[in-house]
Amino acid sequence: MSRPVAIDVSHLGKTYDKVRAVEDLSFQVYTGEIFGLLGPNGAGKSTTLRILITLLNPTSGSARIFGLDSVKDADRVRQTIGYVPQERAIDRFLTGREHLELLADLYHLSADDAATRIPQLLKLVELEQQADRPAKTYSGGMKRKLDIACGLLPDPKILFLDEPTLGLDVQSRLRIWDHVRAMRERGITVVMTTNYLDEADQLCDRIAIIDGGRIKALGAPNELKVGLGGDLVSLTVREHDRVEKLAAAIRDLPAIRAVTTTTSGLDIRVDSPEKALPAILDAANRLTCQLEFIDYHRPRLDDVFIAHTGRSIKDDQPKAEDT
């Protein structure tokens, strides 16, 4: 069962001016997987990422990258990793090629190595045509591709991506996902932060849900969904004063796991929808409780998030990012 470990985080904590950004985080990232840190803004995922890439020192605990300590061996860690910051970390006045040339010197590549690797990377991310135009003429998707090329320049064993598709259109988003998957095929371990549930769900092999600086859940998206137990039936009830009575009646029915009251009605976890649905409808009829809306779905990552943090990830996202 034990897989080779790329990153070992142990009881990590970071406090800024008495505010705890992250607290007692422990997790491992396995070699060759895509690992996601999922959480709303301000949850502590960026802080965690910055500690892993040696830009922040933890106040307690430790992070080891291939056995190297993120503080004591910072310089060697930096030689092992690639980093793709958020979108605007680009010099508008430099061309795509010049970005890569600059980084080649900062990673101390020889002129020969740089001359072979830079065209390869430009080809990989499909920026050959635009390589000699200043980055200010690039679209959001192109900037992101340049970011990724920059992250791959040192030929890293681990690539860190900070919100890789934030603010991108759907098509660019899918292209970036393809690139990330291609990296996994090449044997690169990928660690990324995201506050998009679908991204965590479809792209990541395993995720850590972070909220309030702590890990709330950890595992493969499917495991987490299965772990919730049962499919979900949501009822919207017209007369709200009957909700409690209905809940009491449903609790005793077969194939029902759990019933919780919501603002508009009931959330019911069921083992088998075939048995449960007719029984639920029957109970509602018997109590002459009118239903406005019935929703049935398999557990989604949303539900996992709500179950572990007690709220929806979208609750505190700023409006600007919804567009």
């Binding site: 890439i53 040696t54 030689q79 980093y83 910051p85 680009i90 010099d91 920059c150």
Partner: peptide
């Protein structure tokens, strides 16, 4: 402000 400094500082310089 735009994060370029972080990118520079994440390299082994």
């Amino acid at each position: 402000e735009n994060g370029f400094l972080e990118r520079l500082m994440s390299t082994p310089i």
